[in-house]
Computed example of a mutant assay.
Amino acid sequence: MRVDLLTREYPPSVYGGAGVHVANLTRNLRPHLDLRIHCYGDSRPDAGVRAYPVGLGEGSGTALRAMAVSMAMGHAVRGSSLVHSHTWYTNLAGHVAKARHGIPHVATVHSLEPLRPWKADQLADGYRLSSFMEEAALVGADRLIAVSHAMAADIVRVYPAVDPGRVCVIHNGVDTTEFAPDHGTEHLERLGLALDRPMVACVARISPQKGLGHLLRAAESFLRGTQLVVVAQTADSPELRRRFGLAVARLRDTGVPVVWISGPFPRAALCQLLTHARTFVCPSVYEPLGIVNLEAMACGTAVVAADVGGIPEVVVEGETGLLVPATASDDGRPADPARFVRELAARVNRLIADPATAQRMGRNGRCRAESRFSWEQAAQRVRAVYESAVRQTG
């Protein structure tokens, strides 16, 4: 079976959870399929990978260029048995491929545009276009793969024209050999981190979705001496990056030890950071699953995370971490931001003050990641979806 996978992100250009998903899924599918990759950006040396060097502009230009790339991808997949699209950037390409070549279309849903209203600030009037591209593709797809049960429920709620029988759930995975406890300290020492202080770690994109502003406000109430380390290398816009830098500087001025890692950060350094952190914090206000939580758990780290989306399907309250109640308002942000910040700080402080509980949760998290979340298992289930879609349309 030949499968053409359509994605914006593909190594080495990976900046978010969808890119991590695609990289691991393709690695595990390749031994079993004739897999062709269509992605954005510069050409790759890998066989079977075709890149589309159409640059992305700002605002509405981003959506228009994505539409142009989708048209090109949809034309290029002629001869494939099936196309598999990821995110709105390429969902329309799968829709075009189905309409033009009669190829079944499977779409993995990593998020939904209508549930991310802050994207209007990033895409301007292109947000309406991105939402249109997503809806047309998902309603017309032969199969939809949701990365969590919460995501599956959102799909049929937001797009009622979607037949629930076409939606299945396949959780993201984690490579527990790549992400594993590393008690070395050389990378952390090179960064000048204080190893004699309890550390709180966070890894996120600078975006309203990821809730970093709430985390910085919560850090003002962390127990004295707690060191906050935020790995935030990418941002939705230069302006958001600038504002985040100012917020970090203001927090430092209050005496809170906070480190912002904004540049290259090797995987080995990340594993050491997660291993040595007392807790990993995920303050996202919208998170269909949250691969970063799985990565932290695989490193044996207790997790404090917002009780949103698919996070409770990964982080088990009281067993592998602590969940922070978060009721969203119409704009997707916490209905009571001040309360969310207080509750976040309280849970972090609970684990800072109780290292034994944090260690127990970390051990449980490692076991859960190993036993319940593997990319090999996810790839097997994806292959079964492919076979079902081909049989039905064949």
Rank of each mutant, 00 (worst) to 15 (best):
M1V: 10
R2S: 14
D4N: 07
L6N: 02
Y10N: 06
P11H: 00
G16L: 07
N24S: 12
L25R: 03
L25H: 06
T26R: 02
R36K: 14
Y40F: 15
S43H: 10
A47L: 11
G48C: 06
R50S: 10
A51W: 07
G57L: 05
E58M: 11
E58D: 15
G59Q: 07
S60V: 10
A63G: 08
L64P: 12
A66E: 15
A66N: 15
M67P: 09
V69Y: 03
A72Y: 05
A72V: 12
A72G: 12
H75T: 09
H75N: 12
S80Y: 04
S81Q: 12
L82G: 00
V83Q: 01
W88T: 01
V96G: 03
K98S: 07
A99P: 03
V106C: 06
V109K: 05
K119L: 15
D125E: 15
Y127L: 08
M133L: 15
V139K: 08
A152S: 11
V156N: 08
Y159M: 12
V167C: 08
C168F: 01
C168P: 00
I170D: 00
I170F: 11
H171Y: 12
G173H: 02
D175K: 00
T176F: 01
E178L: 15
F179W: 13
T185G: 06
H187N: 09
L193K: 02
L195W: 12
D196R: 10
M199H: 05
I206S: 05
S207T: 14
G213A: 15
L216K: 10
E220W: 02
T226F: 04
V229P: 00
V230T: 07
Q233E: 14
T234A: 14
S237M: 09
L240Q: 13
R241N: 13
R241C: 14
R241V: 13
R243I: 10
F244M: 10
L246S: 14
A247W: 04
V248M: 11
A249F: 06
P257G: 08
P257Q: 05
V258I: 09
V259Y: 11
W260F: 08
I261K: 06
G263F: 04
P264C: 04
T279A: 15
F280I: 02
C282K: 08
Y286L: 09
N293G: 09
V303R: 06
A306R: 03
G310I: 02
G310T: 01
P312N: 09
V314Y: 02
G321R: 06
G321S: 06
L323H: 06
V324P: 01
P325E: 13
T327F: 09
A328Q: 13
D331Q: 12
R333I: 07
P334M: 11
D336M: 12
P337T: 10
R339T: 10
E343N: 07
E343L: 10
A346H: 04
V348R: 00
D354H: 11
M361A: 04
M361Q: 08
R366Q: 13
C367G: 11
A379I: 02
V385M: 00
E387F: 05
Q392G: 13
G394F: 03
